[in-house]
Write a protein that binds this DNA or RNA. Sequence first.
DNA 1: TGGTAATCGAGACGGTACGTCCCGTCTTAAG
DNA 2: CTTAAGACGGGACGTACCGTCTCGATTACCA
Lengths: 217, 217, 217, 217
Amino acid sequence: MSVLSGVSSEKPRRSAHSHAAVLRAAADLAGRLGYANASIEQIAAEAGVGKQTIYRWWPNKAALFIEVYRGLVPADIVTDDTGSLAGDLEALLARLSHLYCDTPAGNILAGLIAEAQTAAEPADQLRRTYVAPRRAIIGSIFERAAARREIEALDDPGFASDLISGAVWFRLLLGRRQLDRRFKKRLVDAVLQGVARKPARAASALQSRGRDRKGAR
Amino acid sequence: MSVLSGVSSEKPRRSAHSHAAVLRAAADLAGRLGYANASIEQIAAEAGVGKQTIYRWWPNKAALFIEVYRGLVPADIVTDDTGSLAGDLEALLARLSHLYCDTPAGNILAGLIAEAQTAAEPADQLRRTYVAPRRAIIGSIFERAAARREIEALDDPGFASDLISGAVWFRLLLGRRQLDRRFKKRLVDAVLQGVARKPARAASALQSRGRDRKGAR
Amino acid sequence: MSVLSGVSSEKPRRSAHSHAAVLRAAADLAGRLGYANASIEQIAAEAGVGKQTIYRWWPNKAALFIEVYRGLVPADIVTDDTGSLAGDLEALLARLSHLYCDTPAGNILAGLIAEAQTAAEPADQLRRTYVAPRRAIIGSIFERAAARREIEALDDPGFASDLISGAVWFRLLLGRRQLDRRFKKRLVDAVLQGVARKPARAASALQSRGRDRKGAR
Amino acid sequence: MSVLSGVSSEKPRRSAHSHAAVLRAAADLAGRLGYANASIEQIAAEAGVGKQTIYRWWPNKAALFIEVYRGLVPADIVTDDTGSLAGDLEALLARLSHLYCDTPAGNILAGLIAEAQTAAEPADQLRRTYVAPRRAIIGSIFERAAARREIEALDDPGFASDLISGAVWFRLLLGRRQLDRRFKKRLVDAVLQGVARKPARAASALQSRGRDRKGAR
DNA sequence: TGGTAATCGAGACGGTACGTCCCGTCTTAAG
DNA sequence: CTTAAGACGGGACGTACCGTCTCGATTACCA
């Protein structure tokens, strides 16, 4: 079962058709014009829907686009087990790169984060929709690694997640809009050595990394 | 001399007073209402300035706020040498925390990044005003550490900078709006172990901090 | 039996209760907000009725309010014989004054007339509901006067009616919203001398009136 | 000097062109669709003007249309002296008939009167723009007649005016939208006999008119 | 006496218009 | 010739109603 599912039963949405059309139009326009320039007016027109229908179901633009964002994140962003922590992280980075470069998701997310600076409610929803699932995904990757005794269990998986998310985010939104091979490599390395600890008694593992335990807080 | 200064000689600004008043009003309004809700109209009114005066000197809202942002970053964000890499990073984090939590800088930056997703020119200016100076600062911190032979010189200081900036950014804009002690500690640790390498023969460096290092890659 | 009654057998109205509630709510709202500001939406809400129920029984707002108007005109607006033309006219004016000043009828009528300028169907209905009955009433007053040989029969009673109705209308809708004693006096006088002719051999009639310049009423 | 002139110097209207275009478009649309259906939105569009420009200069639709109405009333509605009261009144009726049948003035006036039932301010303005000038015109006709000793001076010229205006109004707005020859004749007769009094020693006056009881109509 | 159709309230739907805010440009008058 | 002030054409906001359209839930009539 997906981490991001099970959210659709909020209200008795009467017109499933209109609902879908609005989300589609919103994603479209955000892709073409950017979050800020995608007006409710245009979205309504493009969806062939009255403005009121939008305002009926979403309290504000942010709420609408949070649902749009949710729809853009594919279920399979939670990756299969590749057998190694590095492999899992690389697979995730590939999927994030695709999500933010080939869909309007990056643009939308930037707009949402900007809006979240001022309004409290969008901020909360954004944390629930974006931060929490992201931490869940990355957390489970580390759990898997710990389960296969590749590393010890992290005592703050949220931090690891934020480190990765922040780096990706920074690179994509302020850089060249792509995650090059080198960047991905460095990021995986930095995470492996910066936040992960080798398991205590791990003969073979000790050789491969030789990192010791005391002092790293 | 500051890394971020020396940019003011663009045009023969007739009214230095008006210029300052606009920047002050813009910072004020962004602080109170957020970047998106601070309209040129209000800024002009609050500054006691004609709208045209704003449009004369800045091509668009983003350009104005980039200058506002620049003005909010204090010269002393480039810290003195504390004698250790960890110390320097901690000092920087403290200053960033202050900048983004106690001034409208975070709010403005979020708005600018959102705008940069759509428009090319603000994106460029933003990279020049924000990304580049930030990399310069962090780069110089690592250079200092290499000079005192605490670490080897990094072969990609930009990556280290982005890793730190991204993490801070993520935490501040999507989290609790503060960098708690634990987070700062973890981030410094992760950077030290994740991107820095000990110098080949590192006798003196070991002394400079009680932290032991043997075997870190 | 009233001149304006006997119109209710159009359809098998299922819910007499709803029907009445709608008319009541409409009259109420028109009184409080004016014809134009009384929306079908509010009327439905205030009547505790679905909008469809209103649209089912009345083709448009004008039709609804024509029925409301009809309901506001009391049966006894057709006055008893006071014995003289002047007396009958004065009695009518008193009733009209009450109707237009103490009920929303004036407000509604103004709205209906405005609407009738554009739409043909409301115009027709308005003539049937308002102009025709008014002419009938005033016509019968003059007939009564002719029958008692106070005046000769008018050859255009419609004109006399319009003259009176117009004057009342003008005064009420554009003036001080009341018919003062002096106005009523002058109007009756003007009608008596302006449209009525004394009967050819009118000995008795002259007595029955004894009205001349000085001391009328 | 015209009774209805001297009103244009209210504010420093910046764009005389826009001002005229709005009035023209409003008159046009009211003529085509009626007062109620002429929306500010359409007027702005047809005039090639921003909506705000309309709201800037007129507080509401009624105020705008009062100015439109004022512009539709021709200066020469104040007629030359025809030499007799009957002639003057007939000339006025002819002009009113034209005004209300061949221009949107009637439609607009109906809308304004309806609106005046609810709002106080439009009601006042309407009295100033419509009722007062009308009374002035008709009053001066009667004054002229008194001056040439055709009748005695009226002690309530306002009543005479309202009687005429009301009759015309009623006929035009609720009838066949024209003032036929017969109606005009009857109205002039009724006014002459109903509100005007022959002068006490009226030898000359009788000559000047040659009109007496027999033969009228 | 149970079935079935019309009617009921509620209110969602695609729309139009409202009156307001702001955009970026243009005009005016004062200095 | 630059200001502050603010009008201009325009686009979007979020709201109120329009008249039509589904919904179940009564309800009243026929079977």
